[in-house]
Amino acid sequence: MLQIKDLQARVEDKEILKGINLEIKPGEVHAIMGPNGSGKSTLASVLAGHPGFEVTGGQVLFEGQDLLDLKPEERAREGLFLAFQYPVEIPGVSNMTFLKTALEEIRAHNGLPAFSAKEFMKLLREKQDLVEFNTSLVNRSVNEGFSGGEKKRNEILQLAMLNPKLAILDETDSGLDIDALRIVAGGVNKLRSSENAFLVITHYQRLLDYIVPDVVHILSGGKIIKSGPKELALELEEKGYDWLREVETTE
């Protein structure tokens, strides 16, 4: 589904990604862990097409297409979704209008007819239950005045509504208490299927107790320095990020 080959990127003059290689197949959940400043969120932003980052080398194929050639909205319509670390507030635009607009853009791209209001509401209610999203939040402006946990849940609601092929969760667990974490992870688990894939970016092992990955990658200094099964996350948690420096120097 996703093949990243020697991806390099910078912001302004600072090189951040220094040659990332990664392959994700349908049905897989990959986790990316790493210390602050290792490039985790940059990788998420670059894949989504954030204009603040410049790709300086490498290639990314998404379903066989050159992802880096596509505009951000085209990537989204092709089925790439980013759950933001810091979801943005859009005053005066109701969450419902926003969801309907996004969904219809993606459906139109896939040659599907627009939903009737009734069909849309049915789908929305279904997905709201899935992520235990409070109905009153749907009628409010996008993320405006939402608590940190509500914003993250709203990201998962959008994920559920838009049903992408590949979902990137950028530190979705940050700022969540344990109940909210359980709800968010529960939502993601219900959305997992053999046709979609997840790239879970996190600083802590805790989230991976709930969303169990197939592969764990450790990102440090803009490169993936180690990949392994889910136990790698536990090992990292136990030994701390200092251990990585040893790994880096020995490899």
Binding site: H50, P87, G92, S141
Partner: peptide, 24 residues
């Protein structure tokens, strides 16, 4: 960018933001 990432192009995104701004 947030709206772009949800499949909405920049022109529509601006229209949506402006409509929201003027909704009151």
């Amino acid at each position: 960018f947030y709206l772009n990432q949800r499949g909405i192009d920049t022109e529509k995104a601006v229209a949506l933001i402006v409509n929201g701004y003027a909704s009151e």
